[in-house]
């Protein structure tokens, strides 16, 4: 009985060690990460977009955020505000505002996410608008989309 228990314990430890050691058992090629970029686009219709905040969550696939860049040239060309702690995680809140007069309307790329993708499956992102406002600070209805 004791011997059987010892064997089981040894097997369990071996599995743990093999699973935890990158040097002993390197990941197979298809599991190695690759990098992809996803555009965050906001459509504010005819209203000028002056401030926006969105929350984005990787809803499927194995993806980690590794970087955030700004959007199209103009009001939101600079990278938006985000919490650096969100990097290497699957959820991020982005926000930006501009008090200038050259504001975009319609569909605008406001940011670009750089993502480390693990595995063959393409990640999907769910985005929701937290807040958006036009030049005068009035709240406006906008839609957001995250796409490769």
């Amino acid at each position: 009985m004791k011997r059987a228990l010892a064997i089981v314990a040894l097997l369990a430890l071996t599995v743990l060690v093999l699973a935890g050691s990158r040097t002993v058992a390197p990941a197979p090629a298809q599991d190695e990460p690759r990098f992809a970029a996803y555009d965050v686009c906001i459509d504010s219709g005819s209203a000028p977009l002056a401030a926006w905040q969105v929350e984005i969550v990787a809803s499927s696939g194995r993806a980690k955020l590794v970087g955030v860049e700004g959007g199209d040239a103009g009001a939101f060309a600079a990278p938006p505000y985000y919490d650096p702690k969100a990097l290497m995680s699957e959820r991020i809140v982005l926000a930006a505002f501009d008090t200038g007069s050259a504001l975009p309307s319609g569909r605008t790329r406001v940011a670009r996410l750089h993502v480390e993708v693990q595995g063959a499956a393409e990640p999907r992102f769910e985005a929701r608008v937290v807040a958006a406002a036009s030049r005068d600070g009035r709240t406006i209805d906008v839609s957001v989309e995250v796409r490769p």
């Binding site: 401030a51 937290v130 807040a131």
Partner: peptide, 14 residues
């Protein structure tokens, strides 16, 4: 606290 709070203050500062 959201970006609208920041935006409102930025406008007032300007």
């Amino acid at each position: 606290v959201d970006v609208l709070d920041a935006f409102q203050l930025a406008r007032e500062v300007e």
